[in-house]
């Protein structure tokens, strides 16, 4: 009993460290990537390649005064940034980086991650509501309607994968895809995926991840040319820092889930040397795609965003679900 508890504590500490480190250095990667796309150097002064930039930014943020504006709902105002970071970190506990590196392998891993992921919307709602700022309020309303709209197609698409795998255990889902690249869930009809529409599932899932993590072109919550800074307009210091890190931690979770559900987790494309490095490679390639998309596309509109979800993605994913169910039944 005590050993399990110790394991969990160690796992949580490692998860926090991993999440924080990733979040910090993804900011660096994002800034360097953006600079590269925009033909400018980016942060390159502090340390080699500007690698000391994230810790220095962190120190700067922590050294700043935490301003709580008058008239805000104090409890929610303080809770919101914590709530932005906490679910992301908790989700790391059950993510398998390889067949051995997993903090707590759960049979309902998928369910748990989505349960925590849906708390992200709460943090935006709290932040916007408690800030007593019209821009923040509008932003949080947008963010919540966006979170609701995109969770539905995301979950429906995940159900197709779960149906194919017959399990909600993330490790098991990966192990079923591990034979070769052709067995990955993204590719149809081979291995264990019965579904011709699996590439579309992947696409829907990826778009939903973009929207769920409030990334461009779906960053309507932040939308700084319209809503100044959206829900974190009133946040300074580490409150802002936590939102920022939370966003990147969520991106990591989203990319981890995409890797596990569709891209074969830690398995090697050619069946050689499976291991954590393959997982990380796929993970960071996906994140690079996120960054690439962000600095290429302009922002959509809120009605364009909701139309995309309710009128296109949800019907498509429902059809996908029925089709998959039919295929599983027939074959």
């Amino acid at each position: 009993m005590s050993l399990t508890l110790l394991n969990v504590i160690i796992a949580v500490v490692i998860a926090i460290a991993f999440a924080a480190l990733n979040a910090a250095y993804l900011v660096w990667a994002e800034r360097r990537g953006a600079a590269r796309i925009q033909r400018r150097p980016g942060p390159n002064i502090n340390g080699p390649f500007g690698l000391l930039q994230p810790p220095l930014d962190g120190i700067k943020l922590m050294a700043k005064q935490l301003i709580i504006p008058g008239g805000v709902d104090k409890i929610l105002f303080i809770a919101a940034p914590v709530l932005a970071m906490f679910p992301a970190i908790m989700s790391f506990v059950t993510i398998p980086f390889s067949d051995t590196i997993v903090a707590q392998n759960m049979d309902v891993g998928v369910l748990m991650i989505f349960a925590f992921a849906s708390m992200g919307g709460m943090s935006l709602l709290f932040a916007g509501w408690s800030s007593r700022n019209k821009y923040a309020m509008m932003s949080s309303i947008r963010a919540v309607s966006q979170a609701v709209a995109y969770e539905i197609p995301m979950l429906i698409t995940t159900i197709t994968v779960v149906m194919i795998a017959g399990s909600m255990n993330l490790t098991e889902i990966v192990q079923q895809q591990s034979a070769s690249i052709l067995h990955w869930n993204i590719f149809p009809l081979l291995g264990n995926s019965h579904n011709l529409l699996m590439p579309f599932s992947f696409l829907i899932f990826f778009i939903c991840t973009l929207a769920e993590t409030n990334r461009a072109p779906f960053d309507l919550g932040e939308a700084e040319s319209e809503l100044v800074a959206g829900f974190h307009t009133e946040y300074g210091s580490m409150g802002f820092g936590l939102f920022f890190m939370g966003e990147y931690a969520n991106i990591v979770i989203g990319s981890c889930m995409t890797t596990i559900l569709f891209l074969g987790g830690w398995s090697c494309p050619f069946g050689l040397f499976p291991g954590v490095w393959w997982f990380l490679l796929k993970l960071y390639l996906l994140i690079a795609t996120f960054i690439w998309i962000r600095w290429t596309f302009p922002r959509t509109t809120i009605y364009g965003l909701l139309n995309l979800s309710w009128k296109i993605l949800i019907p498509l994913s429902l059809f996908n679900l029925l089709f998959t169910a039919g295929l599983i039944k027939v074959f």
């Binding site: 953006a34 072109p217 960053d219 939308a223 040319s225 600095w295 302009p298 922002r299």
Partner: peptide, 8 residues
């Protein structure tokens, strides 16, 4: 274009 959210 920046008003529309595209920075590059």
């Amino acid at each position: 274009v920046m008003d529309l959210g595209g920075f590059s």
